[in-house]
Measured scan of single mutants.
Amino acid sequence: MIINNLKLIREKKKISQSELAALLEVSRQTINGIEKNKYNASLQLALKIAYYLNTPLEDIFQWQ
């Protein structure tokens, strides 16, 4: 199981879903879906999320 901390980290950094989506060149709905565990981010997208949030990938998506 993967624990998804994207919403928590994004909100801590005061970045909206729309802002993050624009940086990543995806839709806001994609970010929303990832945060609600409706969609799994591809490895490429997960790495981009970590880069733009300046946060280690394993802090955003944790295996349990």
Rank of each mutant, 00 (worst) to 15 (best):
M1F: 13
M1H: 10
I2V: 13
I2L: 12
I2Q: 08
I2W: 13
I2K: 09
I2M: 11
I2E: 05
I2P: 07
I3Y: 09
I3N: 09
I3W: 07
I3F: 10
I3D: 05
I3R: 10
I3A: 10
N4I: 08
N4W: 06
N4S: 04
N4D: 02
N5Q: 05
N5D: 04
N5Y: 07
N5W: 09
N5L: 07
N5F: 09
N5I: 07
N5M: 07
L6S: 00
L6Y: 00
L6N: 01
L6V: 06
L6T: 02
K7Y: 04
K7M: 07
K7G: 07
K7W: 05
L8M: 13
L8V: 15
L8Y: 11
L8S: 14
L8E: 15
I9C: 08
I9Q: 04
I9V: 11
I9R: 02
R10G: 03
R10V: 04
E11S: 08
E11G: 05
E11M: 13
E11W: 06
K12Y: 10
K12C: 12
K12N: 11
K12R: 13
K12G: 12
K12V: 08
K13A: 12
K13T: 06
K13N: 11
K14F: 08
K14C: 12
K14R: 12
K14G: 15
K14T: 04
K14P: 02
K14N: 14
I15N: 00
I15P: 02
I15T: 04
I15K: 04
S16L: 05
S16W: 06
S16K: 09
S16P: 05
S16H: 05
S16T: 13
Q17A: 07
Q17V: 13
Q17C: 03
Q17G: 04
Q17N: 02
S18D: 13
S18W: 11
E19A: 14
E19W: 06
E19D: 11
E19G: 10
E19R: 14
L20V: 02
L20N: 00
L20K: 00
L20D: 00
L20G: 00
A21E: 01
A21K: 02
A22N: 12
A22H: 11
L23K: 11
L23Q: 10
L23T: 07
L23E: 07
L24V: 15
L24C: 15
L24H: 00
E25H: 15
E25A: 12
E25I: 06
E25N: 15
E25F: 10
E25K: 15
V26A: 02
V26I: 10
V26H: 02
V26N: 01
V26C: 08
V26R: 02
V26P: 01
S27A: 05
S27C: 07
S27W: 04
R28S: 11
R28M: 12
R28P: 15
Q29P: 06
Q29M: 10
Q29E: 15
Q29A: 14
T30N: 04
T30S: 05
T30V: 15
T30A: 08
I31Q: 00
I31V: 11
I31N: 00
I31C: 03
I31Y: 04
I31G: 00
N32G: 08
N32D: 15
N32E: 15
N32T: 09
N32K: 13
N32V: 15
N32P: 01
G33F: 12
G33K: 14
G33I: 07
G33E: 14
G33Q: 15
G33T: 07
G33A: 15
G33P: 01
G33C: 15
I34T: 02
I34W: 04
I34Q: 00
I34R: 01
E35P: 02
E35L: 04
E35I: 04
E35G: 03
K36W: 07
K36P: 01
K36F: 06
K36V: 09
K36T: 15
K36C: 11
N37Q: 08
N37R: 08
N37V: 03
N37L: 07
N37Y: 07
N37H: 10
K38L: 13
K38G: 07
K38C: 14
Y39Q: 12
Y39L: 15
Y39V: 15
Y39C: 14
Y39H: 11
N40I: 15
N40P: 15
N40M: 14
N40C: 15
N40Q: 14
N40E: 11
N40R: 15
A41Y: 05
A41C: 15
A41V: 15
A41L: 15
A41F: 12
S42D: 10
S42Y: 05
S42V: 05
S42A: 05
S42M: 03
S42E: 06
S42P: 14
L43E: 07
L43P: 11
L43A: 08
L43R: 13
L43I: 11
L43K: 12
L43V: 10
Q44W: 11
Q44C: 14
Q44S: 14
Q44K: 14
Q44G: 13
Q44N: 12
L45S: 00
L45H: 01
L45V: 06
A46S: 07
A46L: 14
A46D: 00
A46T: 05
A46I: 07
L47P: 00
L47Y: 10
L47K: 13
K48F: 04
K48T: 04
K48H: 04
I49N: 00
I49F: 04
I49K: 00
A50N: 01
A50S: 11
Y51E: 09
Y51K: 10
Y51V: 08
Y52W: 11
Y52S: 05
L53C: 02
L53Y: 02
L53H: 03
N54M: 09
N54D: 15
N54F: 05
N54G: 11
N54E: 14
N54V: 06
T55W: 04
T55N: 02
T55C: 08
T55M: 07
T55A: 07
P56W: 06
P56M: 04
P56E: 07
L57I: 12
L57V: 13
L57N: 03
L57F: 07
L57D: 03
L57M: 10
L57R: 02
E58T: 11
E58R: 12
E58I: 09
E58G: 13
D59C: 13
D59S: 09
I60G: 02
I60H: 01
I60P: 00
I60D: 01
I60A: 02
F61V: 02
F61G: 02
F61R: 00
F61S: 01
F61E: 01
F61N: 00
F61I: 03
Q62H: 09
Q62L: 08
Q62D: 06
Q62S: 10
W63K: 06
W63V: 07
W63M: 07
W63L: 07
W63P: 05
W63F: 10
W63D: 04
W63C: 10
W63S: 06
W63H: 05
Q64Y: 10
Q64V: 12
Q64M: 09
Q64S: 14
Q64T: 11
Q64W: 07
Q64P: 12
